[in-house]
Amino acid sequence: MENPYLPYPVRIDDITVEAEDKSLKTFKFVFLNKGDEEKYAYRAGQFGELSIPGKGEIPIGIASSPVEKGFVKFTVNRAGVVTTHLHNMKVGDIMGLRGPLGNSYPWDLLKEKNILIVGGGFAFTTLRSSIVYMLDPANRSKFGNIDVVYGARSPGMLLYKDELVQWEKRDDINMHITVDATDDPDWKYNVGFVPPITEQKAPQGGDDTYAIVCGPPIMIKFTQPVLENLGYEHDHIIMSLENRMKCGFGMCGRCGIGKELVCKDGPVFTLDQINKTPREY
């Protein structure tokens, strides 16, 4: 019998400090055992449980993309016991990884559609996974226009800066990078919060256009009316929820929002689905 509590052993292969305040690091893991990477086949939008023996586990969205092989990556904000310990670990250290867990963004539904991605802060991880997936030469033709609004507090807090610059240069993705404020005179992108930038830059909604929104609650709160005004129906607004989790596969009971479990029935829901829950997240 498969044991879903048992993590795959992994080694930290690389650590990248992502944010200027060092609160965010990207960990690149490689699997110790041959064959485990194949078992860890995932879709963009799923999450994993980073499992540190002696400390505990933490559910984190997968930041690498299914089209990237040989490793999995997670970008982790230093916040509690497990993530603080993880931030102090070094390349070569051994730990565990469970998953992939949860549903994903609805890639079958999104085929042939225009995609608007709205992200804020360090919630950009599974969105990065999605963008890399869609931009892969084998996949790009399966999607219509791709627009990305991504904002952070300051230029130094933006994740994956090298990739953002590369994507800016491409003509098959429309990047709308923004920061809340900056004193950098050379900053050549937008300045302003995500909701107003979305209002100015995002394409109109419609049957063939879906918005994927991931960010802090305050961003989501003010982005929702903007998207509604742009003509996005609630079943065309896709969001990823977070709740306290333990098992990650629907048994321990704590992440319930009504009869749905965020870990197993989600974390990805349409706003229309979320409206039908008690919204206890």
């Binding site: 002696g54 321990c252 009971g253």
Partner: peptide
């Protein structure tokens, strides 16, 4: 009622991961 918590407990250099009853 089946809700549970998962916790690590370490004694010296060895540890266990355990399932404990939890409560809403």
């Amino acid at each position: 009622c089946w809700c549970f918590d998962i916790q690590d407990e370490v004694n010296g250099k060895s540890g266990v991961r355990m399932k404990n009853w939890d409560s809403c």
